[in-house]
Design a protein around this nucleic acid. Structure first.
Length: 425
RNA sequence: GGAGAGGUGUCUGAGUGGUCGAAAGAGCACGCCUGGAAAGUGUGUAUACUUCAAAAGGGUAUCGAGGGUUCGAAUCCCUCCCUCUCCGCCA
């Protein structure tokens, strides 16, 4: 949700942001007038109620004719106040609805444009040169089969396309990655959290996933639940309706949960393998902090993401995502894309978003400090989205015989194993 | 799934039609007291809106949510939600 005060004071700034995102600019004037209607009908209601209360008090002690007179007047006032109240709540509802349609205000440094207009901030590591090593790399599907780690065929039988089983060493690999991620997060001061995967509409809406992203959200219609596409949702909503003492901030949580996504509109995209699946597990970092600290925290999240990928000895680049590809909650977003050898390109592995006060306004989360209560900032960043991380590891660290070297930092989490060996069928 | 109990401010907990944004206690903050602390003592301590106001302050709303009765609702009625206890079932 955007700041109404800012909208009133500087509507042009909001217009510019909407424009850069490719969102509806006319929304600005619609909200301005709805807000005005809300305030004028509100003050009318307040006045009527005030008068009604004053008369009501006099009725208690009044007698005879005077009392009858007052009762008559109070009756009229009651009806008027009720009507005014109805108008006020209707206007307030409309203003709220419009306010909810806005995307977050764009960060001034975020690149403007569509998906292709991102800015590359840095490259880390060098993509492995298989040609120089004189062997043709296998893709992760093939490696997963050879290692007995990934079974896509049987998943298709059981659940359809875009599903997979992690089997044997594949399952162990996930658990190792998750444990390593959680260990790093705990080391950095995060509180580990296992979160619900089903949430009520309010949580989903408050996190900003029912806007343009709605088509990718699974819903259990019969029970009015949504399935979360990331633990960002239950983590953000964790403090819903709360006022948090400013000196408790930052609150840093590392959530682990299944993530379920419809992946609508991606037919024919990434149909092979486990790059794009309907269900996966993920360790997600989530932070509640002051608006003043948000940008610095954004950088810290990015650094923790890099630390993790560094430990996995992957080559990657960091991009500053362009305005049109941001998602409604983020003011700015940094993605890390790892090099996937058989695709010959970088693919998104993690994503760190600064949502400023956008989510906290929607979820009614505030901080209590000097200067009164005000919304706080929320940020989120992927620490480890399992399947894509597995893809990058298998493809990057494979050897000519189909085995895969385990990055050193990961070995303790795999019982000391240093190589994943092919299994006989 | 069956039966029952209950939802009041940071917490405990009073309050069954008006003077109740709400007793009392605890906690917390500040002050007094003290060599320092404890005890004691005093004051303060919800949130939101506001085309009322420079500010102090004022007005309005909120006692799980929504609706109803009434001049007037925390209090009466209806619907919904949630929590707890017992029984059953179950990873």
């Amino acid at each position: 949700m955007i700041d109404l005060r800012l909208l009133r004071e500087d509507p042009d700034r909001v217009r510019a942001s909407q424009r850069a995102r490719g969102e509806d600019v006319a929304l600005v004037d619609a909200l301005l007038s709805a807000d005005e209607r809300r305030r004028s009908s509100g003050s009318r209601f307040d006045e009527l109620r005030n008068e009604q209360k004053l008369i009501g008090n006099r009725i208690r002690s009044a007698q005879g004719d005077e009392k009858a007179e007052l009762l008559k007047r109070a009756s009229t006032l009651a009806a008027e106040a009720k009507a005014a109240g109805a108008e006020q709540s209707e206007a307030a509802e409309e203003a709220k609805r419009l306010q909810g349609l806005f995307a977050n205000l764009l960060h001034p440094d975020a690149p403007v444009g569509g998906e292709e207009d991102f800015v590359t901030l840095e490259h880390v590591g060098t993509p492995r040169d298989f040609a120089a090593e004189d062997f043709e790399p296998r893709d992760h599907v093939e490696l997963g089969r050879i290692l007995g780690a990934i079974d896509i065929e049987r998943a298709a039988k059981v659940s359809g396309s875009r599903f997979y089983y992690l089997t044997g060493i594949g399952a162990l690999l996930e658990l190792a990655l998750v444990n390593m991620a959680i260990a790093q997060a705990v080391e950095a001061g995060f509180t580990p959290m296992l979160t619900p995967a089903l949430v009520k509409p309010r949580a989903m809406e408050g996190t900003g996933f029912l806007g343009q992203a709605a088509e990718n959200v699974f819903r259990l219609e019969e029970d009015d639940f949504y399935l979360v596409g990331t633990s960002e949702v239950p983590l953000a909503a964790y403090h819903m309706d709360e006022i948090i003492d400013a000196d408790r901030l930052p609150l840093r949580y590392a959530g682990f949960s299944p993530c379920v996504r419809r992946e609508a509109g991606t037919y024919g995209k990434d149909t092979r393998g486990i790059i794009r699946v309907h269900q996966f597990d993920k360790v997600e970092m989530f932070v509640f902090t002051t608006p003043e600290e948000a940008e610095a925290e954004h950088q810290r999240l990015l650094q923790w993401e890099k630390d993790f990928l560094d430990k996995l000895e992957l080559a990657y680049r960091v991009i500053d995502v362009a305005s049109g590809d941001l998602g409604s909650s983020a003011t700015r977003k940094f993605d890390i894309e790892a090099w996937i050898p058989t695709q010959g390109k970088y693919r998104e592995l993690t994503s760190a978003s600064n949502c400023t006060e956008y989510q906290s306004r929607r979820l009614d989360i505030r901080m209590r400090g000097e200067g009164g209560n005000r919304p706080l900032a929320t940020l989120n960043g992927t620490l480890c989205a399992v399947p894509r991380t597995i893809v990058a590891i298998l493809e990057t660290h494979q050897q000519a015989d189909g085995s895969v070297l385990v990055p050193e930092a990961l070995r303790p989490y795999l019982g000391g194993r240093s190589v994943l060996e092919p299994v006989g069928k």
